Computed example of a mutant assay.
Amino acid sequence: MAHPQMFDDDDPLLEQVRRVALALPGAQEKISHGRPAFFTTKVHCYFGGSVKADGRWHAHDQAVVLHLPPAETAALLQDPRCFIPAYLGPAGWIGLDLDERTDSRELAELIEESYRTVAPERLVARLDGAAR
């Protein structure tokens, strides 16, 4: 049974995430478990997530879920916008709620850092070459 779509394709926050995530070398988009997932050989970010608390599911429909280095994840957990996403949290992923006040530079830096954490070395080298 397929998951229902859990996002609005016209969401401006999704468009912001999509623009950054797909600009990275080799990045593509697919739908995984009803949500946009951005990947090369592995997923580097998702748009949207959820948390299970008190036996109930709580959606974070306008969020980015990232896989960052442990020290950065620990620091971000101090931010009230952040959450540990269901299923992915134990593997080191962190969610960041987005809204119209989201700093686009911060978002781009976090998506790039997540990409660097999971992308193949050859693609990270292409990214570094493009940055020069």
Rank of each mutant, 00 (worst) to 15 (best):
V17A: 13
H3T: 09
R19N: 11
D54W: 12
D10I: 03
V51N: 12
A75L: 14
A91S: 15
P80S: 03
A21Q: 09
Y87H: 13
F83N: 06
G89V: 00
P70T: 12
M6G: 08
L107H: 01
A71I: 06
K30A: 00
A131C: 04
G129W: 09
R18P: 11
A71Y: 06
A119W: 02
E106W: 01
E121C: 04
A53V: 07
D99V: 03
E112I: 04
D97T: 13
Y46N: 12
A59I: 07
E121M: 09
V43T: 11
H44T: 11
A27Q: 06
I31E: 08
E29F: 00
E100Y: 12
E109R: 11
I31F: 12
R19V: 11
L76A: 08
R81K: 05
L110S: 01
P85E: 01
D97I: 15
F38K: 09
V51A: 11
P90G: 04
H60L: 15
E29L: 02
D99F: 05
P4R: 06
E72M: 12
S114G: 07
P80C: 02
R19A: 15
Q28L: 10
K42D: 13
M1K: 08
Y115P: 00
D9M: 03
E109H: 07
D10F: 06
E109D: 14
Q28E: 14
D10Y: 04
Q78M: 10
A59Q: 06
I94F: 03
F83S: 10
Q28S: 14
Q16E: 15
S114M: 12
Q28G: 05
E29H: 04
G89Y: 00
H60I: 15
E109M: 14
A37V: 06
A63E: 12
E112Y: 03
L66W: 11
L88E: 12
Q5N: 04
T73Q: 07
M1S: 13
E72Q: 08
Q16S: 14
I94P: 01
V20R: 10
R105L: 14
R35L: 14
A21V: 10
V64I: 04
